[in-house]
Design a protein around this nucleic acid. Structure first.
Lengths: 221, 221
DNA sequence: AGAAAAATAAAACATTTGTTTTAACACTTC
DNA sequence: GAAGTGTTAAAACAAATGTTTTATTTTTCT
């Protein structure tokens, strides 16, 4: 072995995560990954069959570690209020997307999910079923508890999209946000504050939607 | 001229907008554009110097037509409430991003902005200054009017990001949203409803932020 | 109409890049 | 320790693709 910490296969996975995240699938060259991982070009094909195979492995790895390190619900969630559960959910989302121990915020793997949302690859399909959909279901159930009524899938989903959209936009548009306002850059120190802002904003949003539901419900009588 | 409606230069611009939007810069080949535009490959280089030159022209054209067709404020905005102005702003944003007369929603140019937010190209810089920044300033001033107080740039910006994030997420993640819930797909018929949902949600969010400001303001005394 | 300029077309070029091949090396197992 | 298996390295290949060149056609201007 060539005297490095991790072995070839893992070094490739690590380097590939960063470069794929930063530049996207097409813009990433196997040669760049090989160089960053200090590995021969052929090693990539040897271990992962082809570029797409490597990408699929990266995707699975990134989601696996991200969701296990920052679960969307904490242990004592069953006893806490739905509002608190929403806070846990949003905080985890920000930490997962932005923190260095997570997907590395600015120059890291967090942008992989943004890329997949924009241009889903075949490798994303299983990730959706295993991670995204349950994640969405959890959020919807939290929202339902906050609303204290079931307004139907359409409105629940709209609420969920509004919340997720806020969170992901920070990692999505980070470069432009940075250009316009440094203070709102999702750095390590800002993460918690930004997450709590989104939390408060979303609670207000849900509350207003609830009021609207009640009003239109009364009108219908 | 080869018996087509528009002349070569414009046909290239039109085709390039769609393909760049759908597949991104790197994934788009000049040959594909030439074929879609019914034009020789060399015509692209002849009229736009190189691929990047064409991309820059597309970007400018897309933003120019988008913002002139769907301005973020209507004529009588000065007399209307800030809440109504926010509604106009959000509706315009959805129409711009999603309608067929705008940036074409699902398979169109709306995704160009998403791509630029993720990976800003040099050609985006002037677009930011000419369109994005004034657009942001307008939104911030509306929010300030709704809050009836100035909480400082940081919170104003956070509000703006939360609102913009919701809007853009629909065009950003449209493919995945479609996979999870067809009802929330931003089609022509859904646009207005979705925009009004985001509007209501955001008004609630801003209201809650305002309450928080007042509380923390009183505590400080 | 004729010359000059602009536009279009076809082919050739040069570069990048994913992949394969072949050989050398390292490690495991009996 | 030798055979076999797994891994790494260098070079070669083949396809894709942006760009240029050169020739031809069309348009414009006087």
């Amino acid at each position: 072995m060539s005297g490095q910490e991790l072995k070839t296969e893992e070094r490739i996975l690590e380097a590939a995560g960063d470069i794929f995240g930063n530049k996207g699938f097409k813009d990433t060259t196997i040669r760049a990954i090989a160089q960053a991982a200090n590995v021969n070009i052929a090693a990539v094909n040897y271990h992962y069959r082809d570029k797409m195979g490597l990408y699929g492995a990266v995707l699975e790895d990134v989601f696996q570690t991200g969701f296990s390190r920052f679960p969307a619900q904490s242990g004592q969630d069953l006893t806490s209020t739905p509002e608190q559960r929403l806070r846990t959910f949003i905080q985890a989302m920000f930490l997962r997307l932005q923190s260095a121990e997570g997907w590395g915020g600015f120059s890291g793997k967090g942008r992989l999910i943004a890329r997949e949302l924009l241009d889903p690859s075949p490798a994303f399909e299983p990730v959706i079923e295993r991670y995204i959909r349950p994640h969405k279901d959890l959020l919807v159930s939290i929202i339902k508890d906050i609303l204290q009524t079931d307004p139907g899938q359409q409105i629940l989903l709209s609420c969920a999209i509004s919340i997720i959209g806020q969170c992901i936009y920070y990692s999505f548009a980070s470069k432009v946000i940075d250009k316009i306002s440094v203070e709102n850059r999702p750095t390590e120190e800002n993460i918690e504050r930004l997450a709590d802002f989104v939390w408060t904003f979303s609670l207000g949003g849900i509350a207003r939607i609830r009021e609207d539901l009640i009003i239109s419900g009364e009108e219908q009588r």
